[in-house]
Amino acid sequence: MTENTNAIIVEKVKQGDKEAYRHLVMRYQQKVFQTCIGFLQNEADAEDLTQEIFIKAYQKIESFRFQSAFSTWLYRISVNTCVNFLRKQKVKRLLFMDSGNQSKELKGVSEPADYSIEREEQRRMLRTALKELTTMQRKVFVLSQYHDLSNKETAEVLEISEKAVESLLFRARMKLQKAVKERMTND
């Protein structure tokens, strides 16, 4: 599906053709879901948030003026929604000392039956390291590693320069390596 096809579908949706939106959902749900997984590290939450993102995009589609590709616009909504979700979750935990989500988070993405303790330890470390990243570093890291976007595409989504993406990604990876080193020292 090219951007031209997207534009035709978006026009149809703007005119009230809700069924046309299904094509966009089918086309982009996997990518949006990957972004959510990268931010939330939890499959169930990621699916719920994917749904929320598509509803939000549908409600805001009138404001889409074809100044960028539809996918860029959608990924921007995805990233911002994920960041807001994490902020709300953090506030909720602070206010209510809610441990429910934490335990859910530890469970993480469903694993094959033979996953090792080592793997679980790795996952925990990854989560801890991701939490250490700044919001921008995390955005860049998720779009680049989970979403598999190029630096140019990531720059377009986040409305920053490619150089900034490179720098943010480098710092994010350095922090990740630092977490690995700390774990190695503790072992």
Partner: peptide, 26 residues
């Protein structure tokens, strides 16, 4: 260790979305 982490990320990123999600969204 870092390679292991990136492999884990790849596994997570390759998770496929539920086939019913689009129906749920609509």
């Amino acid at each position: 260790e870092v390679e292991g982490l990136f492999q884990l990320i790849e596994v997570d990123a390759s998770k496929t979305v539920s086939p019913f999600l689009s129906t749920r969204i609509m």
